[in-house]
Design a protein around this nucleic acid. Structure first.
Length: 235
DNA sequence: CGCCAGGCCGTGT
DNA sequence: ACACGGCATGGC
């Protein structure tokens, strides 16, 4: 059984998708580049990430083998534009070390893990929290993961689909429910476009304003919802 | 000058 | 369990 909130989130997604079209995420030429970008974009503007990626690309360093052979101090300088260079360089190095130790240095081998195991392993790595783990699962490993970022949090709380203090797992469960009835292949594609739309539309219309002012799809869903426990029911 | 960006982590309550 | 500050850099 699917909740009313999940139905509404799905409807919201379908409208955004129809209005804005395919987003073409993740912008990268390889799965490994997605991983690098996922680390670098943490609390960082994408334009800054692009500069770092360009630095690596220019030196042909966008591969597991190349990062393995690159001294960490040099990696820091190349990713400097993205900020947090000390932590991010160490984290990226740790990811490569992780592939080397358990997957013969192959991201493809790692991607064969079941999604649940892969997620657990990712969360054990330094510099990988729930959002980065789910972004890697979805955009680098091709798994049907719901990525919960600040934009999605704003959407589901401001539209009254969840209460303000909803946790990551609760928001993720709602997103998962929204696509629960889709076939596996379709579900991956929906998850892909879903997060991309949250970010791209959210960047323009859904920042710090108390409501999503200016958003072309800002319906007031709260009108017919009443808070019950941690969620809402239709009234 | 201030705030923020496609978060995560260590520390204190 | 939760709140809070630090982490680095560049754009506006």
């Amino acid at each position: 059984m699917k909740s009313i909130a999940a139905d509404r989130l799905r409807e919201l997604y379908l409208r955004l998708s129809a209005a804005y079209g395919p987003q073409g995420w993740w912008p990268a030429k390889s799965a490994f580049e997605v991983v690098i970008g996922a680390y670098l974009t943490q609390n960082t503007a994408w334009a800054s990430v692009e500069r770092s990626i360009a630095n690596l690309e220019a030196r042909r360093l966008l591969s597991v083998a190349a990062i393995r052979g690159l001294p960490e101090v040099e990696l820091r300088e190349l990713i400097r534009p993205s900020g947090y260079m000390t932590r991010k360089a160490a984290a990226i190095k740790a990811f490569v070390g992780f592939l080397d130790r358990f997957y013969d240095g192959s991201l493809e081998n790692f991607s064969e893990e079941t999604p649940a195991i892969a997620r657990e392993r990712l969360l054990e790595l330094p510099g990988v929290g729930p959002e980065t783990a789910d972004a890697i699962l979805l955009y680098a490993l091709g798994r049907a993961a719901i990525v919960v970022d600040e934009y999605l949090r704003r959407v589901v709380t401001r539209h009254g689909l969840l209460v303000e203090k909803a946790k990551y797992a609760e928001i993720q469960a709602l997103g998962k429910a929204a696509f629960a009835d889709d076939l596996p292949t379709e579900r991956v594609q929906h998850c892909n476009e879903f997060h991309a739309l949250m970010v791209e539309v959210g960047k323009r219309h859904c920042r710090k304003a108390p409501l999503c002012e200016g958003c072309p799809l800002a319906w007031d869903l709260r009108a017919s919802l009443t808070p019950v426990g941690r969620g809402y029911v239709e009234t």
